[in-house]
Design a protein around this nucleic acid. Sequence first.
DNA 1: AAATAGGCTGTGTTTAAAGACAGGCAGACG
DNA 2: CGTCTGCCTGTCTTTAAACACAGCCTATTT
Lengths: 206, 206
Amino acid sequence: MEKLTSRQAQILKMIRRFMDSKGFPPTRAEIAGKLGFRSPNAAEDHLRALERKGAIRLLPGASRGIQVLTEGPAGIPVVSRVAAGVPLVAEENIESHYAIDPDIFDPAADFFLRVRGLSMRDAGIQNGDLLAVHATPEAASGQIVVARLGEEITVKRFRRRGNQVRLLPENPEFTPVEVDMRENSLVIEGIVVGVLRTHLGSMGRA
Amino acid sequence: MEKLTSRQAQILKMIRRFMDSKGFPPTRAEIAGKLGFRSPNAAEDHLRALERKGAIRLLPGASRGIQVLTEGPAGIPVVSRVAAGVPLVAEENIESHYAIDPDIFDPAADFFLRVRGLSMRDAGIQNGDLLAVHATPEAASGQIVVARLGEEITVKRFRRRGNQVRLLPENPEFTPVEVDMRENSLVIEGIVVGVLRTHLGSMGRA
DNA sequence: AAATAGGCTGTGTTTAAAGACAGGCAGACG
DNA sequence: CGTCTGCCTGTCTTTAAACACAGCCTATTT
């Protein structure tokens, strides 16, 4: 899809909202009304532009004949095998998308992160599990966080006392990490708000 | 919603299908065309009946002004505190619904079951977790099943040798259950195909 | 300097669509 | 028995809506 101008994106958004609430697309006049145009032909022009750029399809002759061509996959992105340097939720890290309402988690999930390793085993988090993550730099002591330590992405329980942060594994076979926020760069990518395991065909005991 | 006649249900289904494929509701003439009416007024009559019975809403004056009123909550039902005697997935056992695509699990999930107890702790299943369950009476040895033993609903790993079935907990503090299928009534309600944990605010270590 | 895209106003004309009116016929209900 | 609902045909009027035509102004791009 060709790139839209901000005005065109605004009109597309208006159409989407209209369809969500009413269940059918708006007419030219309704678009003009909502956006304050004095002429329905302004809406017509925008629709033509949106069709030309591949955002919608117009069915000639049909009233409300606007089809919004849904761009890309919907749902929550699944982040896996994180590449070094790039942001966590970047195109190249996204494995797929899952059609799940983000609001079943509280606070809402922004993405899933696939876990490698068993460092949080005793918190009921297994290798290959998907963690529902709420993206935020704020974490309270005791929460399980997704943190970036230099190049490494790690999932640990977060404990803080002043500038001294401890990242605790939930498995006696792993050792805690101590970080002084004044010396080392520790970035909180988000807090874990849920766990999702989708494949347990007949796995053996941990 | 009042009960529909088979013809009315058929028309409602046609409207749904039309909206799925086109993105907007049909006109009277389009309904008549699809169903072979020679008069658009037949469609008008049906729409009136559907509105009277609460299946749709008609917006006067608007072209294609048909709103299909979605019946009941969508998504996967969450089964909790199972009452004795009644089927597992019964109205009275359903706690809520979660908007999740059942097909992210394989095989697809039919319902969620809220777990009580820690008998499957070492399989990464904790107290309060939701188990995605595929409803089926067939279980392979090694799978985690939801089984009914008399009045009790239990979640265990399923092992079978002939008529002898063992239901294994995944926690050394619990003891396995042995069942002879010829003597005791064991009903497999389904197999566990996934795990969902939605609330881990700042829980302590297991 | 000319062409093109974006973003509008304003005025029509034509067609798509809602919906009213007048029936017909069958079966269910009191 | 009459009356209601369900399920249709057929016609006609009115309005909703698409869409063509003619412009205006401002940026970009060629």
